[in-house]
Nucleic acid binder design. Structure first.
Length: 218
DNA sequence: GACCAGGCACATC
DNA sequence: GATGTGCATGGT
C-alpha cells in the first residue's frame, strides 16, 4: 500500500467534505509571519484580537513594531497569551528582518528556501512549525507544515505512531506527495480543520476516520 | 472550574 | 538524548 496514494486520498476526502479552506487568514506576508509567532500553542481567535490591537495602535509595520518598547508590544499582544515570551520572540524576528533585510519582506523573500529556513530556525523563538508556516503561507514555498493536529489526525487514521517527530512526519508528506504550494497549503489547513472540529480526544471517530467506515478511498 | 489551544526554549537528570 | 516545566489568555 502506497503512502502517497493514501495521503492523497485522505486529502481528496477532506476537500470533498470541507471544500477549500482558503488559508492563511491574513492580508500580507508580514501579517502572516507575525500571526505564525502569535499562534504558538494558542487559539486563533486570541491571535486575531492581538493582531487587531497592533493595527488599531497604528504600529503594524516591521519598523514601528521593532521600535516599540518590549513592554508596550507585550501589552498590545496580551490577548494571544504568553505575551512576554512572544514579545521577545517577535522582537528577535524583527531584528533579523531589520538587520539583514532592512525591514523589507520582499528582500527576505528573495532568499532560497533552505537558506531562509535555516535563518528563521536560528531565531530564538522560531521553531520548525513557525518557520514552515512562514515559508509556506507567507512566502509560498513548497514546505509541508506539521503541527499537533497533523499528528493527532494521522495517528487516529493509523498513518503515524508516537512519538511526535516533526522531521519524520514532514518527510512522510514531502517524500510521498507532489511538492506543490497550493496543495500543501490546503492539505495542512484541512488537517487543522478536521483536528479542530472532529478528530478530538473524547469525541467519537468522525466518518473520515478508518475505524468508522473510511477505507482509504474518497 | 477544569481543560484546551495552529510551540518553543531551557533545566535537569 | 529523553523527559519535565514555564509561559498566559480566553473560549467551551
Amino acid at each position: 500500500m502506497e503512502l502517497g496514494r493514501e495521503l492523497g486520498e485522505l486529502y481528496q476526502r477532506l476537500l470533498g467534505s470541507f471544500g477549500h479552506r482558503n488559508w492563511w487568514p491574513g492580508e500580507t506576508p508580514f501579517e502572516i509571519m507575525v500571526g505564525a509567532v502569535l499562534t504558538q500553542n494558542t487559539a486563533w481567535l486570541n491571535v486575531e484580537k492581538a493582531l487587531a490591537n497592533l493595527k488599531e495602535a497604528g504600529v503594524f509595520t516591521p519598523a514601528k513594531m521593532a521600535a516599540l518598547p518590549r513592554e508596550e508590544l507585550a501589552k498590545l499582544i496580551t490577548p494571544a497569551g504568553y505575551y512576554n515570551v512572544k514579545a521577545q520572540r517577535l522582537g528577535n524576528f524583527l531584528a533579523l528582518l531589520a538587520g539583514k533585510y532592512r525591514g523589507r519582506i520582499p528582500s527576505l523573500a528573495k532568499r532560497p528556501t533552505q537558506a531562509l529556513r535555516e535563518e528563521l530556525l536560528a531565531v530564538n523563538g522560531i521553531g520548525p512549525e513557525t518557520a514552515d508556516c512562514m515559508l509556506l503561507y507567507a512566502l509560498e514555498r513548497p514546505v509541508f507544515v506539521i503541527d499537533a493536529y497533523t499528528f493527532r489526525v494521522l495517528s487516529r487514521h493509523g498513518l503515524a505512531r508516537a512519538p511526535y517527530d516533526y522531521p519524520v512526519l514532514q518527510a512522510m508528506f514531502m517524500e510521498n506527495l507532489e511538492q506543490n504550494v497550493e496543495f500543501y497549503n490546503d492539505f495542512h489547513a484541512q488537517l487543522v480543520h478536521l483536528g479542530h472540529h472532529f478528530c478530538k480526544r473524547g469525541k467519537p471517530l468522525c466518518d473520515l476516520c478508518p475505524a468508522n467506515g473510511w477505507r482509504g478511498r474518497p
